[in-house]
Design a protein around this nucleic acid. Structure first.
Lengths: 203, 203
DNA sequence: TGCAATATTGCAGTGACTGCGATATTATGA
DNA sequence: TCATAATATCGCAGTCACTGCAATATTGCA
């Protein structure tokens, strides 16, 4: 299940390259003409592939923007699975999110670009929420397993949903303030609030 | 700003009628052919209007399913605005949501139909999330006002986001259990959890 | 080298959604 | 009551994301 990053034959390497070319071309065009002003056809042309091939790599134009953001969330689920079962579910969630949030700082420019498009393009934000909904399911399932209950119970759902809320709120703040405060600190703060209870919020 | 339900000239009345006809026709077709299997053209035909006219009433096919669900959320924002400013923000949120959740029980069948489509059709669920994001903004703004701070602060955002999470979790559970437990009770329970803090969750 | 697996492409199509301009219908004020 | 403004309805032509299918090229492997 884990990532294998050793052999990687010619085929796989080429595929990654193409994928990368698509992303590069896409972001260039997004920058110039805006997300909505860019057609998948134009992206394909910029990446030197046939229009049809674009959809072999990305199911949606929106997914180009959200691509790597996606496996980031996958990593969170992995983290959660590896956490000791003795840990309290909420604590495990918190820790998992923090681990992943930590490397947000390393890829600032790339992330900022993606977030900026997401923040200004409704369809991209919508797609983002849709993907997160999928991960909410995954998180809820993982939590249910460690809690020994049905994934449809309120407990795991609310935990997963709240964690993602915390993450989104943090991200938004992060962007709004021009990445002043490091992301992990914001995430931590949100988790703290949910930990103590929202009745404890300041004013 | 409040609803005016007195005069309502011929024009407005006819418009409401047409809107209603569209919804009726649409749900009939959704039932028969599924959401994705139904074209806006077919809906228009069923409602005795021109294909073009459909988009004069609904910006999106998805919005037919989510229509009345929309003004329900508007009511929550109104409620929040009318709450005494001395009340703690989280308490005000809780109260506002509960007021509106209360009448979920009255329109069971209609709501269940809508939820069921939403639960099984990704594009509809996505649109739902997108609309909720808009209301999250509205809620955050209202909260910021009463808290006397910037709407972009973490506080109001996290509060609004968490409240909506609670709502979604409750709805999901409500549907999953075949509407056994009344919705308000579920909502209340979720708000309780967030109130006390998620660290307090059972196992 | 030959065969299986997979990647790339072209083509033709579907269907949601838009802009525009024409026309019908209702509201309003003189 | 009638002219006029406002708004609703509609047709048309077009754009664009996305799909299924079948042909072809490329790569992995025995």
């Amino acid at each position: 299940m884990a990532v294998m990053n050793e052999p990687l034959g010619l085929r796989a390497r080429k595929k990654l390259q193409t994928r990368q070319r698509i992303e590069t071309a896409a972001f260039e065009l997004f920058e110039r003409d805006g997300f909505d002003g860019t057609t998948t056809e134009a992206i394909a042309a910029g990446a030197d592939i046939a229009p049809r091939t674009f959809f072999y790599y990305f199911p949606t134009k929106e997914d180009v923007v959200l691509a790597d953001y996606a496996d980031r969330l996958n990593r969170i689920v992995e983290q959660l699975r590896e956490r000791p079962h003795t840990e309290h579910p909420w604590a495990a969630l918190r820790a998992s999110f923090l681990v992943v949030a930590a490397d947000y700082d390393t890829e600032r420019e790339q992330l900022t670009r993606r977030f900026r498009i997401m923040a200004t393009t409704p369809s991209v934000y919508a797609r983002n929420l849709q993907l997160q909904a999928g991960w909410e399911d995954a998180l809820a399932a993982a939590l249910a397993e460690r809690m020994g209950c049905d994934p449809e119970n309120l407990g795991p759902r609310l935990l997963a949903s709240s964690a993602l809320s915390a993450m989104r709120s943090s991200q938004r703040r992060w962007i709004a303030t021009g990445q002043q405060t490091p992301l992990p600190a914001l995430v931590q703060h949100c988790f703290d609030q949910l930990d103590t209870g929202l009745a404890d919020i300041d004013p």
